[in-house]
């Protein structure tokens, strides 16, 4: 593991909970292992329930820890996994650029988020398997257009050859960070009586940090 991927559990100022959703087989777990451990496994086992991984990155000299929840894609697990949207400040909706069905499901996943997640959640659409360009079934422009219409971030990436994987996650984290720091300015006189985006970002205490340190009792992660 390179230094870049080292994870100092307590050495961070922000903790962002991110969920990875999308149809079964689009490569969610491999995007996650590529981002957190720089690993890829062509025939990794299907995700059952949820799996969890973290990575800490730096934005504007601030250490930001991404706590990423990888979910099972199969329909049957939806009732269970939607519970994990609670407290998430970011979501990656993943589809496979070579499978049009997985792209057609994107609006269904969007609706899932609108129904179960925080309304301020930052969402990014990721077209995975960009290495399969010769089998492409979803034109880049179409997905880009859809993203703009629905106020989503957008990238195409390949967990297999690592193209744009870091970029997708970092772009999402940056956007969340921007939103959160703006909220903090807006809420500089925040009294703590009502929920705010500033509070949702911190799911576990952040020692040594002045910002975002919510109380332990509010750390519900799902």
């Amino acid at each position: 593991m390179s230094n870049d991927l080292d994870d100092y559990s307590y050495d961070y100022e922000y903790l962002f909970k991110i969920v990875l959703i999308g149809d079964s087989g689009v490569g969610k777990s491999n995007l996650l292992t590529r981002f957190t451990r720089n690993e890829f496994n062509l025939e990794s086992r299907s995700t059952i329930g949820v799996e969890f991984a973290t990575r800490t990155i730096e934005i504007d000299n601030k250490r930001i820890k991404a706590q990423i929840w990888d979910t099972a894609g199969q329909e049957r697990y939806r009732a269970i996994t939607s519970a994990y949207y609670r407290g998430a400040v970011g979501a990656l909706i993943v589809y496979d650029i070579s499978k049009s069905e997985s792209y057609e499901s994107v609006s269904k996943w969007l609706k899932e988020l609108r129904d179960h997640a925080d309304e301020n959640i930052v969402i990014e659409l990721v077209g995975n398997k960009s290495d399969l360009d010769h089998l492409r079934a979803v034109p880049t422009e179409e997905a880009k257009h859809f993203s703009a219409e629905n106020h989503l971030l957008f990238t195409e990436a390949s967990a297999l050859n690592a193209d744009n994987v870091d970029l997708s996650f970092k772009q999402l984290l940056k956007s969340i960070y921007k939103m959160v720091s703006k909220h903090q300015l807006d809420l500089s006189d925040y009294s703590g009586n009502k929920p705010s985006a500033g509070q949702t970002i911190s799911l576990t205490p952040t020692p040594g940090s002045a910002v975002g340190g919510s109380q332990k009792t509010k750390n519900n992660c799902c």
Partner: peptide, 21 residues
């Protein structure tokens, strides 16, 4: 409980796959 671990977070798979994972 103090660490806010929910049993479903880790044991869902234990039940779903009978610990085969």
């Amino acid at each position: 409980e103090n660490e806010n671990i929910e049993f479903i977070q880790f044991s869902f798979r234990w039940m779903n796959c009978l610990l085969m994972r």
